[in-house]
Simulated scan of single mutants.
Amino acid sequence: MPGFENMRAIEILMVEDNPGDVRLTREAFKDGRVWNRLHVVEDGLAALDFLHRRPPFDDAPRPDIILLDLNLPRMDGREVLAHIKADEALRIIPVVVLTTSQAEEDVLRAYHLNANCYVTKPVDLEQFIRIVQAIEDFWFTVVRLPPSSSP
């Protein structure tokens, strides 16, 4: 990308098992204003392996932000969130819960587990892309993210 020679890409870890949502998110970030690299894992155990740089993610970058679905195979997003926020080295990474659940108990539990924000995925495709771009605008251009030093 021209003009990005001296900039570091924003590293995004997306924990999502729905290929359609992954594809839409990639499209939204590709059209965005911030240079980023989207890494995708499909379940909670793979997310923890990525974050702890366990095989096959030995060379994984430390994410600047995590987009986390709640309803995942093998280990759900609530367990992943609890693990991240209980880990001294990981807890400063912002976690955006991006899920289809509108249940109040899921919202409350996510915030009790120290999620940084909770966003319900819209069903409409155009609205989904707008939501992802709004996340990008807020988290990558308004908010100052913590430095991405290695844990």
Rank of each mutant, 00 (worst) to 15 (best):
D69W: 07
D21T: 02
D87R: 04
S101T: 09
E27I: 14
N114P: 00
L24K: 09
L72M: 04
A47F: 07
I10L: 11
A47E: 02
D49I: 00
R109I: 08
A46G: 08
L48T: 01
R109F: 12
A115H: 03
L98D: 03
R62C: 06
T120G: 05
W35L: 13
Y111N: 03
L24Q: 07
R74P: 00
D31P: 00
E16M: 06
Y118E: 02
H39C: 01
D76G: 06
F57P: 00
R130W: 10
D76E: 11
T99K: 05
P2M: 12
R37A: 07
H112L: 11
L24S: 02
I66A: 03
E136M: 09
N116F: 10
V142Q: 13
D58W: 00
E88V: 08
V97D: 03
V40L: 07
L70T: 02
E88L: 13
R53D: 00
E88H: 13
M75W: 08
L90P: 00
D49G: 00
L13R: 04
R91I: 03
E16L: 09
Q102H: 11
T141N: 09
Y118H: 01
G44N: 09
L125R: 15
I12R: 07
P122G: 07
G32E: 07
A86R: 15
R109G: 04
D64F: 08
Y118A: 03
V95F: 12
V119F: 09
V80H: 04
S150D: 14
L67M: 10
N18F: 13
E79F: 10
M7I: 03
R74Q: 08
A82P: 00
E88Y: 11
I84M: 08
A103S: 11
L13M: 07
R23H: 14
E5W: 12
R130L: 13
F138L: 14
T120S: 13
V40G: 05
E104K: 14
W35F: 15
E126A: 12
P56F: 09
V40P: 01
D106S: 04
D64S: 13
P146E: 12
L45C: 09
K121L: 09
V107S: 01
I66H: 03
L113N: 05
L68D: 06
E126H: 14
F140A: 12
E11W: 05
I12A: 05
N36I: 04
I65P: 01
L113A: 12
